[in-house]
Design a protein around this nucleic acid. Structure first.
Lengths: 363, 363
DNA sequence: CTGTTAGCGCTTTCAT
DNA sequence: ATGAAAGCGCTAACAG
């Protein structure tokens, strides 16, 4: 299909125009635009006035063409060993990178083991050696994070948090969930029409992350708010990240001892483990609710073993995080939403099919 | 905060490099890159090979700086008289426009009365006079749409549909909801724990749009699928777009005659009318479900009068629609997802607060 | 058919 | 403190 074009309306005001009006050279105008100094106070002020009067907006193309520097962004994330959650985050980062690669922004990804402080420190070291122009990170291990951000602040390197926020640190932006609130939502989904005096099983992390803990808090807060604790029996158990057979034994034991389990909520992303168990033992009529759209979770959502999954847009977190840095650095744009919480998405069998966030994605 | 920069790695291959390798001038290379013809077959093929071997990627900045044309996109949408739904669409368009305005893409918005064919035709006429390079439209009035798209196809002007799709038309892309499915989801939300043998009130459009009809179909399909029709009494009524007092009378009448109404689903975006009524008459314990996050609807969601709102990302539709055109025209990018259905978002009192789609939005 | 060249708007260096 | 001019990579008009 041939592409038609219309003439460009020559309305934009250029540096040259400013220079002509101010009766100075483009060089001088450029100096005041960028506060490079070396301009007489008189000229300085006069040109500034003209600049704003004529509403000068630099042409980004020309700017980027003329500038010879590029921006190196470092990304610090957990490895994606335990489910593809972090892969989704990286996908979003990749999409953002594509959009800004033409603006001389490059991205380097560093990963660490989310259960191993030392690996975080090591990655943080590497990051410092990279000497990036900006950093995007998931702040695991508060102490280490503080150490790192202090260095970054010293070097005037801006950084953005995703996944969870750290109080008292002046980051450029935070894009992530409100875990407490998402636990609250999960409770709502769990409790609507759950048979009274039945048992609800809460499953947590053996390793214990801040995020799952907060979700649980939110969940319990809902029960309390609507005074539901008395009507149900609440059971609590921790499962391990990798020991499947042990987990299965644990679940079997629980179900043997409790015949009235009607609801299971898993606060981390491994509801599929529970679903595996339920499916294998043909346990029906149990409402399973979990987090994060891992493929295995989605499968169980679609076949009805899992009732509901709460999601928090991992892709979007990565995308927005990187874009915030890129816009801040390459476009000199201020970040208008320094703190932005991800929507708490409620996914059911019935609405999972149309749930995609990026139509321009490759897959 | 001072911005640090690292050196740009001089890795990019330029037209000049290709020319040197091929022992021709940049002009010739440019000709084959753009298939402008006038190149000997020999050179043509040789240069093409070198181009791909050296993985030449044009520098967009330079390109956009050199090109003097701009792209004029026309947008054809309903007026936003009846609630701010279309304002949200426009907001998304505005955001997209901002992102591409530096790439010489301008946007002109034309609006019509969605209840008046003639106004659509008139707007379509204007649009043709504009002679845009691309068109984004909400295809109301199938017949008229066909007329318009035929003209556009004749002139090789690409167009994108949002809000609803038109079968048998070869649009560049479609971004919108699956209304049937969203009705199905609404039914799920309605029926979970709804008291048996109670009455459900379905409210439709007096004017009747395709979209509301499809939502209703989906809703009923759910009831049928789970054989719920027998357990409930289904009542149906149409309300009018603007006649508030008449609507109120109608509702009052219905409630007088039916004392067991426990659920109300409104298939258009005016659940707030129903909510007004419920609030005024202090009718509690009735599950009201509706569509679209108009401010008035959200208010009732937050205060608990409305239980659930189904939303379909109007902003995103506008944003993606415009971006698809812009990328196609200004960036020569193919549209990877010609048909993309919007997520069916389930909003409750508990998750409405974090529901925003654009962290970079002004508001 | 092919090469040359003058921009596009901005940055930056080098004189003055 | 200021101006002139050489690019950045690409396009397009013009000359051969």
């Amino acid at each position: 299909m041939a592409i038609k074009r219309s003439k460009f309306p020559g309305d934009k005001v250029r540096i040259k125009d400013i220079a002509r009006v101010a009766k100075v050279s483009v060089g001088t105008v450029d100096r005041v635009i960028h506060n490079r100094g070396g301009v007489s106070l008189d000229n300085q002020q006069r040109i500034e006035k003209i600049l704003s009067r004529m509403d000068f907006k630099p042409n980004k193309m020309a700017q980027l063409l003329a500038i010879k520097n590029d921006y190196k962004l470092a990304v610090l994330l957990p490895e994606s060993t335990y489910g593809e959650y972090w892969l989704d985050v990286i996908k979003g980062i990749g999409r953002a990178e594509e959009e800004v690669v033409d603006f001389r922004v490059r991205v380097e990804i560093l990963q660490f083991n989310q259960y191993d402080i030392a690996s975080f420190s090591k990655a943080a070291q590497e990051l410092q050696k990279l000497n990036p122009d900006g950093v995007l990170m998931a702040p695991f291990f508060k102490r280490e994070v503080l150490k790192l951000t202090r260095v970054l602040e010293d070097r005037n390197i801006p950084f953005v948090f995703i996944d969870s926020n750290v109080d008292g640190i002046n980051s450029l932006a935070y894009y992530g969930p409100r875990s407490y609130q998402s636990g609250y939502v999960a409770a709502k989904m769990m409790m609507s029409n759950l048979e009274k005096s039945s048992t609800i099983l809460l499953v947590g992390n053996a390793v214990g992350s801040n995020q799952t803990a907060k979700r649980e808090e939110g969940f319990l807060a809902y029960l309390e708010k609507y005074s539901l604790e008395a009507d149900y029996k609440i059971l609590r158990v921790d499962l391990h990240a990798d020991d499947d057979s042990r987990n299965e034994a644990q679940l079997a034991e629980l179900f043997r001892k409790n015949h009235n389990i009607r609801g299971i909520i898993m606060f981390n992303s491994r509801i599929h483990c529970v679903a595996d168990f339920l499916e294998k033992h043909k346990l029906k009529n149990i409402r399973a609710i979990g987090y994060d759209l891992l493929d295995r979770n989605v499968r169980f959502l679609k076949n009805g073993v899992v009732e509901c999954i709460i999601a928090q847009r991992p892709q979007l977190q990565g995308y927005y995080g990187l874009m915030a840095l890129a816009k801040y650095l390459a476009f000199n744009e201020t970040v208008t939403a320094p703190v932005c919480y991800m929507p708490i998405d409620i996914l059911l069998k019935e609405n999972i099919d149309d749930y995609k966030v990026y139509p321009f994605d490759v897959d």
